[in-house]
């Protein structure tokens, strides 16, 4: 069971207070009607699903009910950082992260 730092409540909480919400930093296309089916499918269904560093969203369902982002290693489950919506991660694959 993970222990996750909620950036709003500003403390570590147990995973059971949260629910997972998929890959982060996916912006909804502003003009969906302009996209081809393939492009729309890419937004709708396809995810990077990496081994290693993953940026994902979590929802503090039994807490402050805010969504936030996390950078987690999908192999080791280590959570490197959590950060509010609208911010960029400090740790990415390109910036000295482990693979």
């Amino acid at each position: 069971m993970l222990q996750i730092y909620c950036p709003y409540c500003q403390e570590l909480r147990e995973e059971t207070e949260f629910s997972y919400s998929g890959e982060a930093h996916i912006a909804r296309p502003l003009e969906p009607q302009q996209l081809t089916d393939a492009q729309w499918a890419d937004y709708l269904f396809f995810r990077t699903n990496p081994r290693g560093i993953h940026h994902e969203m979590w929802y503090h369902a039994s807490g402050c009910r805010r969504y936030f982002n996390a950078t987690r290693n999908t192999q080791t489950y280590e959570i490197y950082e959590t950060y509010p919506l609208g911010q960029q991660p400090a740790l990415t694959c390109d910036i000295g992260g482990k693979r």
Partner: peptide, 13 residues
């Protein structure tokens, strides 16, 4: 409720 919050917080703040 989670769905409404998801869209307002993550897409249309």
């Amino acid at each position: 409720l989670a769905w409404l919050e998801l869209w307002q917080q993550t897409e249309w703040p």
